[in-house]
Each structure stands twice: as structure tokens, then as C-alpha cells.
Design a protein around this nucleic acid. Sequence first.
DNA 1: CGTGAAATCGACCGTAG
DNA 2: CTACGGTCGATTTCACG
Lengths: 150, 150
Amino acid sequence: MDDIDRKIIKILSEDARRSLSDIGNAVGLAPSSVNERIKRLGASGTLRRFTVETDPATMGLPVLAFIWVALRENADEDLFRSFVAESPHVLECHHVTGAWSYLIKIRFAQPADIEPFLAALKAHRFLGRSETILALSSPVLGVFVADGDA
Amino acid sequence: MDDIDRKIIKILSEDARRSLSDIGNAVGLAPSSVNERIKRLGASGTLRRFTVETDPATMGLPVLAFIWVALRENADEDLFRSFVAESPHVLECHHVTGAWSYLIKIRFAQPADIEPFLAALKAHRFLGRSETILALSSPVLGVFVADGDA
DNA sequence: CGTGAAATCGACCGTAG
DNA sequence: CTACGGTCGATTTCACG
């Protein structure tokens, strides 16, 4: 991880589809060298993945909710984790400290759609208690941006 | 915006470097059709940009926390919003229903660094009450990554 | 880390449903 | 209006120096 790696990450953060040669003459390296660095950054876990930024509101899922979950005493925790990982509306799921077990961040088309999701959690015997919080607005909603010089 | 568009977005969210033909036979369309849909999603603003997700832990900020905030009675709410928007460690901030006013998602180098952040909120007379929850692990983390404005 | 060749991919066209 | 198939240029990806 040197300054060139940071420059590459910065460039990819702004536009992950820039060509290797384009990035190459921005950082003063050959395309193949840039490719090797990107692969190394991916292997080391510094670059988690290539993804897209979307506007969820226009995707038909304007309702953002946070659901606190306390698992049942004998719930299959691994099964719970794979269930939420495969639920398409679940944006994030965190194992947290405090009175609750998990915090789930999730999107819905309308508030009423939360009910079947909770019903599914109950049906799988995961749910002990839960509490749902709706986001009214989001002054800050963003990705982590790596810093480095341009 | 139909189910095929959502599928494409889901696939790109998980790996934005899947080839058009690969996406094509995942959704049952020709590569060129997938290309047209992606371009249309970009033009309509539904797809904001292609980017990379970095690992904050290797960037020196391994501690993920959620801070529930109840503002003081006479707090300047607009000032609070700009304060959190300009705080570099704040990943997200949501105005929420329920007992609390706001939910802040934030990263730190170490747990001890949370204290000066809370102190700053107090110093600006924003803070009524607050409660901090640490994330121990995150089975699901940011499938639909969205940015405020870009 | 740079160079080269080969394979692959993405962009654009006309055409059809 | 959207999907399709073919073609061409660009890009990625190797092996090697």
C-alpha cells in the first residue's frame, strides 16, 4: 500500500470503469502493472468489491427502516445470517452490543411490506422480540470514501 | 423499471464487473439488451455510478458504531445536519421515528475515539441524550450502496 | 515493472417483433 | 419501443524479458 495504490483506489472510487491504460497514465504506470496492483488490492481485502451506487427511491423502494432483532433462545444463528444475507431487501445486518442481537437495515416499497418480512422471521423461528424504526429522511447517506491526493 | 432492471442492479451491486453476456443469461436477455438497460438506468439516475467498496478496517477505521441521538429541545437542527454531514467519520445519518431523533452510522480507529465525537456534539449544544451501539460483526454490509448526491 | 500477442469484452449498427 | 445478432475497436489478460 503506497501512494500509487491510494491514487488507484481514489480513481476507481470515482469511476470503477476507467480503463487500465487510462489509470496507467494517470499514475505513471503500464496498464499491466495497474492490473497487478488492483488484483493485489483485491486479494489483500483492501478492495472489497466492484459495485454500483444506486438511487433506491427510484427503484421503487423508498421506505428505509431499521429493525432491531433479539433472537429466540434456541434460534439457529447461522441460518438466520444466511436468511438475511439472501433477503433481497436487506441492505445491511450487524451483530451489535447492547440489549438487541442484530440491527438490520432494510428497504421496502411501502411500510405495509415490513409485516410479511417480520412474519417470515417468525416463521423461521428466529424472532424473539423486534422493534422497527422508520427513517424519515437521511441528511447523510453514503459510502466510505478513501482519501488520497488526486 | 421492472423486475429485470432490479435483477440487473442486484447483480451489479454484488459484482459490477460481470460481463454483459453473463448478466444476460442470468436474466434471460441478450447482452446488447442488458447494455441498453444499463445505459438507460444510468441516464435516468437510478444507477449513479460504478465504484469500488474499500475495506475501512485496512484504511485504519475498524470500529463501526451506531449512535442514537435525541436532540436538545432548542437545538439548531439544520446546524446539526450540516455538522454530521461534514464529519468525515460519519457514514450515514437518518432522521427516524421512535424514541430517538437521529441514527448515526460512524467509523472510528478505536472505541476511545467515540468520546471526543460525543463531546463535540455536546459542545455544539446538539445533544440531549445518546446511546452508542458497537457492531461486533456484519453478516450483510451494504448491498445497495448509495451516495447523497454525486 | 514493461512489452507483446491472443482472447475476451463492450459499443454500435441495422433489423425484427 | 424494446430485443436481437453480428461486426469492429478497445480492453483485459497472460507469458516472457
